[in-house]
């Protein structure tokens, strides 16, 4: 089966209004830049987006936000986006904030076929509202449910024609779990190589989780806070 698509425009075929999407990355690190650009240009709207962050005002998910393509965001930290804050406070955008580890585990569980699980994070806080509470080992836990998506968009450093992926440094972050939690997972990679060229010992995401793959172009890899010695 051929998983290779030409570019982001071809990769996003099938994404339509109102769908739930997962977008990998932490801040601007490891975000699927090409796919995000194609989604912004497509004008597809009423999207529910699951992403740890919401990009910045003029880059990443921030562009979709600016153009009012998002109906709802499920995220953990959205601090560096003024437009997000404005839309949230005015009620234009529905927002569900999750503790980061809970968000990561909900996605992992979604990909692993675990419908729900208990975690201590958020007990006694507003995150606990409406959730089942149960005590294990003398500690209170919240029942959290799994997340899946119609499409998951991930970005890796290397990929092969079979969809195997290798991430670079901290650009793995949410990408690995999201790859497993998308009904259709689209991987964009910096280098796309023929099957067999990647060392099987080094694969982070096995190809079974990836349905479409393409070589991205023109990566900007913007840095949010360049901090030096």
């Amino acid at each position: 089966m051929n998983k290779i698509v030409k570019n982001a425009e071809e990769a996003i075929i099938g994404v339509s209004n109102g769908m739930t999407l997962m977008l990998g990355g932490f801040g601007l690190c490891g975000i699927p830049e090409n796919s995000l650009k194609a989604l912004a240009e497509s004008g597809i709207k009423d999207l529910v987006c699951i992403s740890n962050n919401a990009g910045i005002d003029d880059f990443g998910l921030g562009v979709l936000l600016r153009d009012r393509q998002l109906k709802k965001m499920i995220a953990s930290y959205v601090g560096e986006n003024k437009e997000f804050e404005r839309q949230f406070l005015s009620g234009e955008l529905e927002v569900e904030l999750n503790p980061q580890g809970t968000l990561a585990e909900r996605i992992r569980a979604g990909g692993a076929g675990i419908p729900a699980f208990f975690v201590p994070a958020g007990y006694g806080t507003e995150v606990a509202q409406g959730k089942e509470v149960r005590e294990f080992n003398g500690k209170m836990h919240l029942l959290e449910t799994a997340l899946t998506a119609d499409f998951a968009f991930v970005k890796a450093k290397y990929g092969d024609y079979s969809g195997n992926l290798i991430y670079n440094n901290t650009a793995n972050n949410f990408n690995n779990m999201m790859a497993s939690a998308g009904k259709i997972t689209i991987a964009e990679v910096e280098e796309l190589v023929p099957t067999g060229e990647l060392d099987p010992n080094q694969i982070h995401t096995p190809g079974i989780f990836v349905q479409r793959i393409f070589k991205g172009t023109g990566y900007e890899k913007r840095i949010e806070f360049e901090t030096v010695r």
Binding site: S76, Y77, V95, G101, A121, G122, Y123, T125, V127
Partner: peptide, 17 residues
């Protein structure tokens, strides 16, 4: 409330565990 919307990030997970 009403002012700053940043999100909890990993803080809730960290303090709970």
């Amino acid at each position: 409330p009403g002012k700053l919307v940043k999100g909890m990030g990993g803080a809730m997970d960290l303090v709970a565990s």
